[in-house]
Simulated scan of single mutants.
Amino acid sequence: MTLRLLLVEDDQRLSDKLQRFLIGEGFVVDLVTDGEDALHLGLTQEYAAAVLDLGLPSLDGMAILQAWRQNQRDLPVLILTARDTWLDRIAGFKAGADDYLVKPFHPEEAVLRLRALIRRSGSHNSAKIVCGTLTYDGMTGGMEMAGQPLKLTAFELRLLTALITRKGVAVSRNHLIASVYGYDEDAEAGSLEVIMSRLRRKISPHIIEPIRGYGYRLVGLPS
């Protein structure tokens, strides 16, 4: 089972990019842009963690966090905000935040902080995905083959993660491009095929099946 996150951010450009990046890192992401929707989902759905912006339409992020805590919702919460004074941080932690990340930020830092929060909360017990000889640990982001850690570049790992979290299902080339490059507007999408070629050589070309005119599918091999 993959880790499910609640991403609450009303800046469409930022939220789209961060959602794509998190998906590329193997998370399942529910994105909401409205405070009332965020409050409802946080109270009624189960998440490994939440990324919560403070400045939201209809209901402020701080009020949402306080309502979650008052209703005994103990999911780890990473506040994501432009409010960067020390008093803002104190207010966030007093409201029940587990961590605080100020914009602008690098998405990899957000992922590292989220994984640390999830690890401490113990919400990662079922975070492993197995596909034949491949095993993906959604909490650590690590990948193993036949019990041995795979030595992959960051792009190769994102690509393989996007495939294993949808094992057996054809994944479009556009989705893979977004998963690999998500936050990097300057990346050349054409290099996806180069990364795919290197990855297939490392783990066996038979594990990743090309779908002509569409994308790829991870089929795995018998363990």
Rank of each mutant, 00 (worst) to 15 (best):
A170C: 12
H106R: 09
G96L: 07
L163D: 13
A146Y: 13
A82R: 07
D84Y: 01
G122R: 02
R69C: 11
A82F: 07
D137P: 10
A162R: 03
W68K: 06
Q66M: 05
R158I: 00
T85G: 13
I129C: 14
L152A: 09
Q66R: 07
E109K: 07
K103P: 12
F155I: 00
A116L: 08
C131Q: 11
G132Q: 14
F93S: 06
R83Q: 08
A154D: 07
H106K: 08
C131G: 12
A97C: 01
L134Y: 12
W68E: 02
T85D: 15
L134C: 11
T140C: 04
A154T: 07
I118D: 12
L101R: 14
L59V: 03
R113T: 06
K103H: 04
G132P: 15
G122D: 08
V169I: 08
P76H: 00
L150V: 02
P57E: 15
E108T: 09
A67Q: 13
L87P: 06
A116F: 05
D137R: 02
G96N: 03
A170M: 12
S123G: 14
P149W: 13
L150F: 12
L80A: 10
R158D: 10
P76V: 00
R113G: 12
G138I: 04
G147V: 10
I64H: 09
V130W: 15
